[in-house]
């Protein structure tokens, strides 16, 4: 046994030496977040300012909401930034996080094939639209990945008076990210629920899809339940190995008016509208 352990130990030591070398002085914040904040480019626009100001490095782990929360539960992240209100509250209630703060919101839209086989265009409420899709048995693509978007979709099915994740041939549970799900919907002519930001960012490669519910921008949205709030939660320092102090600093910085202003302008140049709308307490009270 001893002989077999030695190479393992050597490999671990080598791996440790690779990771450790450069980060002697710089503090590292482990941020677990959803793909939407990272893929949209928002974090790249925001984080350098934080890193410069606090001489810290932010390691972003961009995963599904489910995994981001699991990382927090395991103490493998210092702070989480996600969008699944009920699960965020449960995360705090179960003692995994200290306190949840509002950060920003964007909104969801329902997109679908331009020929609209379920004739849903013009229906104002998302839940009614889902009911209509079910009646027409039109193909619906679900993220099916326990993400924040998937959670929202489930609650919409419930509002529509149906079981979530319908077990039917027209309901395709993909278990993939938003981008892949949109590509799928575009290819096969399916409806899907998406956050507006990803749809805008991917717009050019989705010629077969158009917004069915939600209008051209958040101001034209006809269904308030489609709002998509993001929250930030420092992980409970009791888990050990958590840089609670830096996490607190990060939350304060992220919700500060100055950072919120950056959020408000992000994406306007490219898409003619913001991808995220600031919504922190400090911003609302400014």
């Amino acid at each position: 046994m001893r002989v077999r352990i030695i190479p393992f130990v050597v490999v671990m030591l080598l791996a440790a030496s690779c990771g450790g070398g450069s980060s002697d002085k710089v503090r590292v914040l482990r941020l677990a977040t959803t793909t939407s904040t990272n893929d949209s480019g928002l974090l790249n626009a925001l984080l350098p300012a934080f890193e410069a100001e606090y001489e810290a490095r932010v390691d972003v782990v961009a995963v599904g909401t489910g995994q981001a929360i699991a990382l927090g539960e395991a103490g493998d992240a210092d702070v989480i930034l996600v969008h699944a209100r009920a699960r965020e509250e449960a995360f705090v209630a179960e003692g995994h996080g200290t306190v949840r703060s509002d950060v920003m919101y964007n909104d969801f839209v329902i997109v679908g094939p331009t020929d609209d086989p379920a004739s849903i265009a013009g229906i104002p409420l998302a839940s009614d639209v889902l009911a209509a899709i079910a009646v027409a048995e039109a193909t619906f693509a679900s993220r099916g990945d326990d993400s924040g978007t998937h959670s929202k979709e489930r609650s919409l099915w419930k509002t529509a008076g149906m079981t979530s994740d319908p077990d039917a041939g027209w309901y395709k549970s993909l278990g993939q990210g938003m981008g892949s799900t949109l590509n799928y919907a575009n290819e096969v002519g399916a409806y899907t629920l998406t956050d507006r930001g990803t749809f805008l960012a991917q717009g050019e490669s989705l010629p077969g899809l158009q917004v069915m519910v939600g209008g051209a921008s958040i101001d034209e949205s006809t269904d308030p339940s489609l709002l998509n709030p993001y929250g930030v939660i420092p992980v409970n320092p009791d888990k050990g190995g958590i840089d609670a102090e830096l996490a607190e600093v990060f939350v304060e910085w992220l919700t500060s008016v100055e950072t919120q202003e950056t959020i408000e302008t992000f994406g306007v140049d490219s898409f003619g509208q913001p991808l995220f709308y600031p919504d922190s307490e400090a911003w609302r009270n400014r």
Partner: peptide, 28 residues
């Protein structure tokens, strides 16, 4: 298989794509 199959439940989901999915869901 993730790209081409789409990981559709009951249609194109195989073990590897299911593993990716459950990992992303945090169901380690």
């Amino acid at each position: 298989v993730m790209l081409v199959g789409g990981n559709i439940e009951g249609e194109t989901r195989v073990l590897t794509t299911a593993i990716v999915l459950e990992t992303r869901k945090g169901n380690f």
